[in-house]
Design a protein around this nucleic acid. Structure first.
Lengths: 388, 388
DNA sequence: AATCAATACTTGAAGAAGTTAAATATTCGC
DNA sequence: GCGAATATTTAACTTCTTCAAGTATTGATT
């Protein structure tokens, strides 16, 4: 059972995978509850759990206080032994690499970042290696328990073979990043698109837990979206999916760099907001932060820019709700540092444009801690251990 | 094996279901090809196929001419015996019921329609019963081989329990149509939303065959969309999915009856087109057909109305491509009687607004034969036999 | 024509994964 | 301490699939 667990794979019977992922994502659960949840017999759960316990991935919690009617043997819930294994997660951006060490439950145990001034593949790999060293330096746990690394970056990625098909900001094409990073670090590497990783992380370890379908929207320079439908991440047949930033919301709106017109991003992207704020205030050197400050100070024209942006984002989110009907939607991203200026406009626009019962979809709007992106990379690495 | 095949269920081992659906949707295939396609051993395919052949659902085709390199035993491909079983499909609209009899491969063998002048549940059931009698009257095959009925109508449907939660045009709420129709007809009944049914039908028996993800857009009074993602029909957590008609495409556009603004439907729905055409021509009694005639005759103002409508539909379709990235998209529906007026505008708008590689998604734009909706109902019934 | 290599399919034994039913464990309320 | 209730384990059995070996059928080669 789980023959190759120490050589890097974790392929067991389907029931074992199901049991492990359920315990991992839905906290301590008793065997009977698992059996009901997964449609298995409790005997099957007992059998599936045994090797996982023996290998140290799961353990039994002390019997909990009664919750039911009264009588009966108390349950001994199964829980994940989070320190059984640790994972490196690294997000690569245009100007820095950000890394964390997480345990099996995606809790962060160490974090670090390094600047990046050369987009060359080799230079990036070197910095990733140094970042890993930095992380090992501050990581208080047993470093022999780190065997996996998750890498994320924006662009067109083939997760299956660890290939970066195209990265616009690093100017990479067809870089076999997974293989290269594995050679450098000696770790088992998973590569994934950053937004998809964040979506997967939120689906397994965040607000998306238990949702059959789920969407995560990131607001920033670009406006992106990751989708989980019927429990699976949506990838898009041509590599494009969740491109909420280029939905048309205003046929008479500004031209977009994508060639379209009135795209969400051309109204609500960071650059678009700055451009509009400069235009309205007549200050051609205004920065985004200054625009935020002006809006917070009550400058009506700049506030209107943010209101329009929030409205466009709301329309985009409503489009997601109308088309795929997710159980819940999380809105996040660096751009949401200006959270307070967006929130109400996003909600108002969403509620107006969501069709019928789709408006019942709960919206969480919250800024994102900086290391969350790296944590998502680690989360993808955790997934790759559990569901290869 | 397949113990209840004659009592209405068709639940066999997973491999058998997989083999049958693959042969059904992807035409005659040899056992080896099936094994490769499904990730099974050829032994498993042989064993799974035996009872299906014995029951008369599959048969072996004569060995085909060589296609490969040369040597080797020729394949005896498996094919579906289409006349093994027949299916009734009925679409219920506001003013008529349309029905067909299909074989296992969803080929139409008889078709009929009856007017409907009373939206009362009982009256509709009576007409469905009479329609079934009409169909049996003209059906040339063995009517004891008809055991299933598929019913479709627009609205909010729970396929699992055959419940019509809400039908706007019949003013039904929570009608257990599946149970009622089963009592009347003595058949095993499946109920499904009409657009979802059409999507499923196209996915199994039409242009969507083999596509991992697929979208079907219907243009008419309403503008709807059915989605298949990762091989499964998208249902929407709150019962809403594929609501392409209420995506915002023009923030400064007309108010929509849904409460939103600039929705696709408020620009490209049949009613919206008529209203705009009346407005532009100053003829308050203009009908849709007259508007089509004027446009075809070259009346520029009316042509512009159709152009704008096509543009809005193209934006909606681009939104689908950008968000879920289907392998292909079929555009169809009654409204496409005016196909020639829409086509180029839909394509142009789609190509402009589809992001990057999403524009590679092939678009089929074609009008829909009237009985296609009823055939889709039969197709859903076929599915319910194969995958209960 | 006989043989060989290639490919398709079948068979039977062995194994994996799950189920049912019965046994065991642990608690509460009396 | 006893019985009812609930959780977990165990063992026997069923079902499904694969593996390995064998059969079938063809084209190419001798």
């Amino acid at each position: 059972m789980f023959p190759g667990i120490d050589t890097g794979t974790f392929a067991g019977p389907p029931a074992a995978t199901a049991v492990f992922t359920t315990v991992l994502t839905e906290g301590p659960v008793s065997r009977v509850a698992l059996a009901r949840r997964l449609g298995l017999s409790s005997a099957a759960v007992t059998k599936a759990a045994r090797p996982l316990i023996d290998l140290g991935y799961l353990h039994e919690l002390a019997a909990t206080e009664r919750s039911g009617p009264g009588a009966g043997r108390p349950a001994s819930p199964l829980a994940v032994r989070a320190e059984r294994e640790f994972f490196l997660g690294v997000k690569i951006t245009a100007d820095e690499v950000i890394g964390v060490v997480c345990d099996l439950r995606a809790q962060v145990h160490a974090s670090a970042r390094r600047p990046l001034d050369d987009p060359d593949v080799d230079a990036v790999l070197t910095e990733v290696g140094r970042l890993a060293d930095d992380l090992f330096g501050t990581f208080p746990g047993d470093r022999t328990r780190v065997r996996r690394l998750g890498l994320t970056l924006s662009g067109d990625i083939d997760r299956g073979i660890g290939l970066v098909r195209y990265s616009p900001f690093l100017h990479w094409r067809d870089v076999p990043l997974g293989r290269l990073a594995a050679q450098r670090t000696g770790l088992t590497v998973t590569v994934e698109n950053d937004v998809k990783a964040l979506t997967a992380a939120e689906h397994w370890f965040g607000e998306g837990v238990g949702a059959e379908s789920f969407a995560l929207v990131t607001v920033g320079t670009g406006i992106g979206c990751g989708l989980v439908v019927n429990g699976r991440l949506v990838s898009g047949s041509y590599g494009v999916a969740g491109e909420i930033g280029h939905l048309t919301v205003d046929a008479t709106g500004p031209d977009c760099h994508c060639g379209g017109r009135g795209c969400v991003e051309s109204i609500a992207g960071t650059d678009a907001i700055v451009a509009q704020a400069r235009d309205r205030t007549g200050r051609p050197d205004l920065t985004f932060d200054e625009a935020v400050a002006l809006a917070r100070a009550g400058q009506e024209q700049v506030r209107a820019v943010f209101a329009r942006a929030g409205g466009a984002i709301g329309c985009g989110i409503a489009a997601v709700a109308n088309l795929v009907g997710p159980t819940r939607i999380v809105v996040s991203g660096e751009g949401l540092a200006a959270y307070d200026l967006f929130d109400s406009h996003i909600r108002a626009s969403f509620e107006r444009q969501a069709f019928g019962a789709a408006a019942r979809c709960p919206l969480s709007i919250r800024p994102l801690p900086f290391e969350e992106w790296a944590r998502a990379a680690a989360a993808v690495s955790i997934q790759s251990l559990v569901v290869p």
